[in-house]
Structure formats: structure tokens, C-alpha cells
């Protein structure tokens, strides 16, 4: 894969993020933000790989800490977003 692939991907992702969020109504800004927050825990994927290939014990311990923190971010983020979204109800007619 070419060296330019990831930077180009990053730019595409940034454009996608820009377009996606511009359409979200202010009503949902909090759940949106907390959902985004959960997604930023995607770094867990990097943490898993980095730790699996780490050699020294120190690196492995740190890597495990990163995995714990990122998983808290992911699990807590998605769950709390769901908890909030569950509360948004329409008027019963």
C-alpha cells in the first residue's frame, strides 16, 4: 500500500465528518458528542496491536493500561449515548 494512502484516507474521513455533523440538529448535540466520544476510543484497536507486539514488560503493562482506558471510553460512551437517546420521545398522540 502506498505511503500516501493513509494521509489521503485521513483527509477523506475529515471531509466525511464535516458533512455528517453539519446535518445533525442541535436537539441531538449531546448524544452526538458522546457517540463521537465513544468512537474516539477506536484507538483500542491500535492499543491491542501495539501491546501484542511489544517486547518489554514495561511496554506491555502500559499497553494494557491503554487498552483498559480505551475500552472504558468505547463501552461507557456507547452505553451512555444509548441511555440518553432512549429518553428522547415524541409526544404521544
Amino acid at each position: 500500500m502506498s505511503d500516501l494512502f493513509l494521509p489521503i484516507l485521513l483527509i477523506l474521513a475529515a471531509v466525511a465528518g464535516y458533512k455528517l455533523i453539519s446535518d445533525v440538529p442541535s436537539l441531538l448535540h449531546t448524544p452526538l458528542m458522546s457517540g463521537m466520544n465513544a468512537l474516539s476510543g477506536v484507538t483500542v484497536s491500535g492499543a491491542l496491536v501495539a501491546t501484542a507486539f511489544a517486547v518489554s514488560t514495561q511496554s506491555q503493562v502500559l499497553g494494557c493500561a491503554a487498552v483498559v482506558l480505551a475500552t472504558i471510553n468505547v463501552a461507557g460512551g456507547f452505553l451512555v449515548t444509548d441511555r440518553m437517546l432512549k429518553m428522547f420521545k415524541r409526544e404521544k398522540l
Binding site: 485521513l10 455528517l20 453539519s22 474516539s40 477506536v42 484507538t43 484497536s45 491500535g46
Partner: peptide, 27 residues
């Protein structure tokens, strides 16, 4: 996250981190 994705050459992390980063800037 996106920069760490670049550091680790992780497709998924770059893409999702990039989306979150720019989404946050829009907000």
C-alpha cells in the same frame, strides 16, 4: 486517535479518528 492511527498504520483508527476529529471541530 487519527494520528496514532498514522503511527501504527491502522486503517480503521485513521478513518474513525479523522471523522471524530473533524466532527468535533464542526461542533
Amino acid at each position: 486517535a487519527a494520528t496514532v492511527g498514522l503511527t501504527t498504520s491502522n486503517f480503521l483508527v485513521v478513518a474513525v479518528g479523522g471523522i471524530v476529529g473533524s466532527a468535533g471541530i464542526v461542533l
